[in-house]
Amino acid sequence: MQRGSVSILVERCKGCGFCVEFCPTKVLALSSAFNSKGYHPPHMVKPEKCSGCDLCGMYCPDFAIYGWKVTASGS
């Protein structure tokens, strides 16, 4: 089961690639799509590998991505 996920504010991204490079499980890649400033924001290519560790969030100098943990609730 997927343990984590990320939220991406594509319009804040400047395409630096820090999140892609330093994700420990290589969940992310820069997409071929552009945001309105012409940068390529990241997207999840291996979502099942995401732990929600938020390292991508700690690295992102533009506050454009963050990771969070998914837990199965009782309901």
Binding site: G52, D54, G57, F63, Y66, W68, K69, V70, T71, A72
Partner: peptide
Amino acid sequence: MSEVLTPVNPVE
């Protein structure tokens, strides 16, 4: 169902 525990970026 899945539940989001950290719904906002901690820096925000």
